[in-house]
Design a protein around this nucleic acid. Sequence first.
DNA 1: TGCTCTATGTTAGATTGCGTGCATAGATAT
DNA 2: ATATCTATGCACGCAATCTAACATAGAGCA
Lengths: 238, 238
Amino acid sequence: MDSAPRSPNGFLAALAADDFELIRPHLRTVDLVQETVLVEVDETLKRVYLPHRGVISLIVRLAKGEHIQIAMIGRDSIYGSFSALGDSTALNSAVVLVSGVASALDVDRLRAAAEQSATLRAALVRHGLAVYAQIQQTAGCNATHTVESRLARCLLHTHDMAGDDELVLTQESMAQMIGARRNSVSLVANTLQQAKYIHYSRGHLEIIDPDGLSKTSCECYAAVKAHYNRLVRPRCLS
Amino acid sequence: MDSAPRSPNGFLAALAADDFELIRPHLRTVDLVQETVLVEVDETLKRVYLPHRGVISLIVRLAKGEHIQIAMIGRDSIYGSFSALGDSTALNSAVVLVSGVASALDVDRLRAAAEQSATLRAALVRHGLAVYAQIQQTAGCNATHTVESRLARCLLHTHDMAGDDELVLTQESMAQMIGARRNSVSLVANTLQQAKYIHYSRGHLEIIDPDGLSKTSCECYAAVKAHYNRLVRPRCLS
DNA sequence: TGCTCTATGTTAGATTGCGTGCATAGATAT
DNA sequence: ATATCTATGCACGCAATCTAACATAGAGCA
């Protein structure tokens, strides 16, 4: 019970031994390279991804070329859980936000395994719901909260998901994540830096004071964390 | 094939005969009364709902007492599909937005049936994903689109979901749906009325020109419709 | 009929964030 | 060292929306 985790990915580590055996032979390790598009909306998802390090960003592309981030997948979770349970047409686009490493697995293999195991299906549903919880909170947050709150929230989430204090992120990409303009982000990022919550320079961002960021963030950070704790019991959102 | 539909609810009507038989004995008809809270976030969902008429609104409650609508469930779909597949703790609150009638079914019964039938599970996943698609579009929409576009989109969706041109809806409730203030809604609702797209009076709203509303609406309406058509093949979002 | 409540209309000022453009400075290449 | 590129800082005007308050008019009730 207190042995080292079988996998650095939370989804895999929490699986029952039987379920893990069903998919273990098919796992491949892949690099997650920042900016790589894993899948676009309406394409068929071929592989699910289980990050060990790094973050996958789920985004909705809008008509004017904007792309709004709706959720993030990190080392605690899996991208593509619902695809394995049913329809493998991607509902959104997935892009690597922070470089890292992941296990990858053919959707068909995972689907076959899920058809054999109710507990595996249950795990996939729970992880899918954790993403669902993120998305609904994003919807509420985007409707009413300020750019400053949303940025703080987003940085906290990224920090948790990546499990690393240093992130490679420009203000431009942060702006796209929260659906704001770059100059608006520049302003509030400056404020956060002066408050010593973060430090950044030319695309390198360091989270110095997560508690400080929490104060600036809206309640959405805590709300998502609570859902995650119940559904996924993550290591990084402890 | 061209017989009358077995049920006025799209989810039930599209089920294979075997799957329908699994749950038919447990269906109960219930009234959906406007403003009724079906479940609050973090409560255990007892029953799933399959509207024949009327609309159920899924909302996220935020810290300052706001409640933002993230999706709607109408006569084509089911509220609680994911609860039956896995975790039955509600991730959001569900409130009756437009009065009507629904079939209701104990979550436990549906879960038991789903455990016996892979095709039933697949249908539940597809309907759950249709809601997921709504929520992610709401997230993007709330981030960047104007109150006017969002209101037009929301009215079109409600119109489709309810399958009725006349809705009982105040400007206050519309405002809460899209996460805006009542006076902002008053302004744009006025514009829409002058354009002869809608007519309203003291809580009674009539959709006169859906095509006109489509022009005012952002692309999010069409995007959700496309996902629905693929996943659910609804009758009302033809 | 008159009273009251609720839904809607309207206004004014404040604020947030956008659109645009440009300046600056660190990083990289030559 | 110089040039160039990219990330960031910043400023100005503008549009959308919020906050707050008040006016009005149907609807229902006494």
